[in-house]
């Protein structure tokens, strides 16, 4: 194979010179073009999030719906244990939705998103808030249904089987999502949740014997970690992630 002579090439290419336009001309061009820049419409952040959730994230609505249906089905038709049901299923919609929340970043859109009106951090946080709130409503609904139609739900058990696993798994998943690809953070968190859930259902007595204070502590710890994560997101710590 014949390789082209670099020196020849360079000489040849040097013949083409492009003169740099003057500072004045650049300014002029910018001033001219400025007229054509469209005026920004003010869109409220939450409205945008709402729109996005409605339009983009079908996954989120679906998982919540499936969660409610499965929860009611397991407990009323299958005669399942409401507490273990809450333990295993309650965090799933949020965990799966996290993949969607971080999709923009995972697909390498962060640079583009940073140029938008609302920063990706704002978007992520408001999406998280929306997802969290809606899922909370679903949970309260399911718990109310269980409480009224089957057995009375004990607050301390709710703490053990719903609040703590819910908070811990979500804060774990959020942490992993900040550091790694969310496509893996969610399945890893679900795997951990299921492993724990299985173990606890097999050793229910041991789990019951753990004092409530311990769970209160875990709850506070998870809350604290969540707070830290929100701060991390706010500061953009998730921009750099490991593939």
């Amino acid at each position: 194979m014949i390789k082209p002579n670099d020196q020849e090439l360079e000489e040849w290419l040097n013949e083409f010179t492009i003169e740099y336009p003057s500072e004045e001309k650049i300014e002029q061009t910018i001033a001219m073009l400025h007229h054509y820049v469209p005026k920004k419409k003010k869109v409220h952040l939450f409205r945008q999030v709402y729109k996005e959730l409605l339009g983009v994230s079908r996954v989120f609505w679906m998982t919540n719906l499936i969660y409610l249906a499965a929860g009611i089905g397991f407990i009323f038709i299958g005669g399942g244990n409401p507490y273990i049901t809450l333990f295993l299923l309650a965090p799933l919609p949020v965990l799966i939705s996290l993949i969607d929340v971080f999709r923009g970043r995972d697909e390498g859109m962060i640079e583009l998103e940073l140029s938008f009106k609302h920063s990706p951090s704002q978007l992520i946080l408001s999406k998280l808030a929306t997802i969290g709130l809606f899922n909370l409503v679903c949970n309260v609904l399911l718990i109310a249904v269980i409480h009224i139609f089957t057995e009375h739900i004990l607050l301390s058990s709710l703490l053990k089987y719903w609040v703590v696993p819910y908070m811990v798994s979500i804060s774990l998943c959020l942490f992993l999502s900040i550091k790694f690809r969310a496509v893996f953070a969610a399945p890893i968190s679900i795997a951990i949740l299921f492993s724990l859930g299985m173990a606890i259902s097999q050793m229910a007595q041991v789990y019951e014997a753990v004092p409530t204070g311990m769970f209160l502590f875990l709850f506070m710890a998870a809350l604290f970690v969540l707070g830290l994560e929100v701060k991390m997101i706010y500061k953009g710590a998730y921009h750099e992630f490991s593939d």
Partner: peptide
């Protein structure tokens, strides 16, 4: 870039 392009063109032609 233009230089690489010329190089590549010549490469294709030679093989």
């Amino acid at each position: 870039d233009p230089k690489e392009r010329i190089r590549f063109r010549n490469l294709l032609s030679s093989i």
